[in-house]
Design a protein around this nucleic acid. Sequence first.
DNA 1: TATGAATGAGCTTTCATTCAT
DNA 2: CATGAATGAAAGCTCATTCAT
Lengths: 211, 211, 211, 211
Amino acid sequence: MSETNSTFENLPDEKRNRVLAEATEEFAEHGYHQASVNRIVKRLGIAKGSLFKYFGSKEGLFEYLFGQAVAEFKKPLKAIRDSGSGDFFERIEQSFLASGAFIDAHPHLYSIYLKMLFNESFPLRDKFLGEIRAAHAKYLRRLVDDGIASGQLRSGLDRDMTVYTLHSTLDRFLQSHALPSLDMGIEPVGRTIEDKARAVADLLRHGLGNA
Amino acid sequence: MSETNSTFENLPDEKRNRVLAEATEEFAEHGYHQASVNRIVKRLGIAKGSLFKYFGSKEGLFEYLFGQAVAEFKKPLKAIRDSGSGDFFERIEQSFLASGAFIDAHPHLYSIYLKMLFNESFPLRDKFLGEIRAAHAKYLRRLVDDGIASGQLRSGLDRDMTVYTLHSTLDRFLQSHALPSLDMGIEPVGRTIEDKARAVADLLRHGLGNA
Amino acid sequence: MSETNSTFENLPDEKRNRVLAEATEEFAEHGYHQASVNRIVKRLGIAKGSLFKYFGSKEGLFEYLFGQAVAEFKKPLKAIRDSGSGDFFERIEQSFLASGAFIDAHPHLYSIYLKMLFNESFPLRDKFLGEIRAAHAKYLRRLVDDGIASGQLRSGLDRDMTVYTLHSTLDRFLQSHALPSLDMGIEPVGRTIEDKARAVADLLRHGLGNA
Amino acid sequence: MSETNSTFENLPDEKRNRVLAEATEEFAEHGYHQASVNRIVKRLGIAKGSLFKYFGSKEGLFEYLFGQAVAEFKKPLKAIRDSGSGDFFERIEQSFLASGAFIDAHPHLYSIYLKMLFNESFPLRDKFLGEIRAAHAKYLRRLVDDGIASGQLRSGLDRDMTVYTLHSTLDRFLQSHALPSLDMGIEPVGRTIEDKARAVADLLRHGLGNA
DNA sequence: TATGAATGAGCTTTCATTCAT
DNA sequence: CATGAATGAAAGCTCATTCAT
């Protein structure tokens, strides 16, 4: 099913990783269209033709690279899903921390993801975003179901709206974790990711209202 | 500070507005780099040289155009700030609805804003986003102060974190309002903006927890 | 109907002609695919972008250029069709001489035509060749009709086969006129085009047989 | 003179033939420059380096391949030359049919020959075409000599011009046999090769004129 | 001997910008 | 002022050829 590119996949691990790393950085810095294959090969010190041998086209390179990334994106979720904690809000907090750790480990991938979110011209955008969203939805839905069943969530909550609310809230907190400079004037200074995770969990648990 | 361009500003209103409107649409559709000056002048039916006379460069055009837009962005906030309602969460809900209405009225501006958020290569990005954030921060800070003073917000809330939480939450709900297709698998179908506004306000008021 | 390229058509005559002449020579020397836009602009001393402004693409340039040429191709035919001579074979001889003169006047165009004949990958090949063939067929058909009506052609001749025979014979003699070096060992040395025209007319009139 | 390549010549017959057959097809489809060594080795399933080991270069491959072909081209002539018929025009008709049969048996070789005729950039074009022409000239010259000696050809015919006429006429009829689609509007539909052979022989015997 | 990864000059095309008219 | 022809660097991509394994 996968049109694996044997030339590239037969490369020594080290080189293969360098190629993907440099290309990922280029896409992260410039987005898809503004990324330059010329710059990538210059960074790598390889011939232009080689990259096209490996991936066929700039688009092929991006698809390969981000396709691998999507699989990575899903991993943090699984880790939490299988964790034992029974408390709904604790699991949310753990999810948030795990995602934050993933972003810190793969900042370029997350940067590409964010550019893709609002830039419609990325190749295979719908497919990739759809996959990621579907994984998140499935994961959160299970959490919500558990939370409702165990009575930890308020009665009367609409299941769909709750999944949506959870996703939106977590997602935006992660955005600001990845690009703190964005929150000029808003991002509270000197807070660790743990502070933020607690704030999110707190908001979701109690809201901001007084009783 | 701004090198006001007398040539452009002396144009008839109608033409001036058409120029800005078409350029805005082009930037909204394609982002900054992928936007094409060629296409803009073709849409407008004017000479390419004219656009460069008016704005000096592509970057100059964007700065002028988005500079105007930033002023627009701030308007919905003011409308609410001066509204009479005394209930904190009601004012939040109103803010959300007002912002939603603004987005519906100026979809191209909001689209540029979203692209700019995660694309570091927009010219004057830091300045523009900073201005917008500062306005939001100032506005939300006053709301929070009022809410704390009137005892409508939980005691013990950290002021900075609360502003941050409010902003993040509202912001992400507005993102999904502007690009609903993004929420594949997550966005609940058939909900109106009013439903979402209520969901946001509700989340912020009570949280999701049971007591 | 014609997508006339105003930029190019507004150029000074001299420049327009030089552009077409150099491009024609390039296509004549190298065929379509092997022709190089780089070489053309270098020969012309103009910027690469200019040629693309004028014609949109390499293919656009070729279509424009050869489209003009096809109109030229048809002219020699008309001159003869309207000539007064009543003798069928004399008119054939005149046709041959007129076509030969055209080839001598536009050797590059004829060279392109010949390359196109046997190289299926020229753009718009079918359209162009179809036009030329149709013009020839119409012209020869009228000659044959006249020749049959006036009794100058053998009775019992099949009209279609006769048109085909005439066309093939004239065509091949013209090929060898354009590329005499091809006829190594066959092309008789020291013969003028008039000699050949007479030979063709003679063959068609009497054949080679003895009574 | 020829740097016979022992590596290739020592290959098993089957493989050698496949290599030549696929390469011939590629050159026939695309001409010399547009033919792709990449495609050839992909079709063959062999390594690219092997082809270069065998033939040194793309040009070397073509020379080897078409050099073999030239020998083939000459065969049909010999078959007729040694045939017994005494009638000149009958022998011409037989020659035409034999050549037609050869073309049908080796369409790719003839296709290369036709592309080469008008495309000056084929390697060794002059040598190859010269050889073929010389063989034809020699063959036709003998036919013409016999025809004159036996009184079957009109007295007063110029020997050189007659050879030239014969060659041109036969050649063009064969061209249209190989690429009938070229004769749009001219090629008579529904005629067999035998019809055409008769038409050629007829033209040459009697001409088209009335007495 | 066979392999196929690596090469890099060359290709067509785009585009913001300039400037003579 | 408005015009739009001219510019040329840079883009994505191809391909015959080489050479270490």
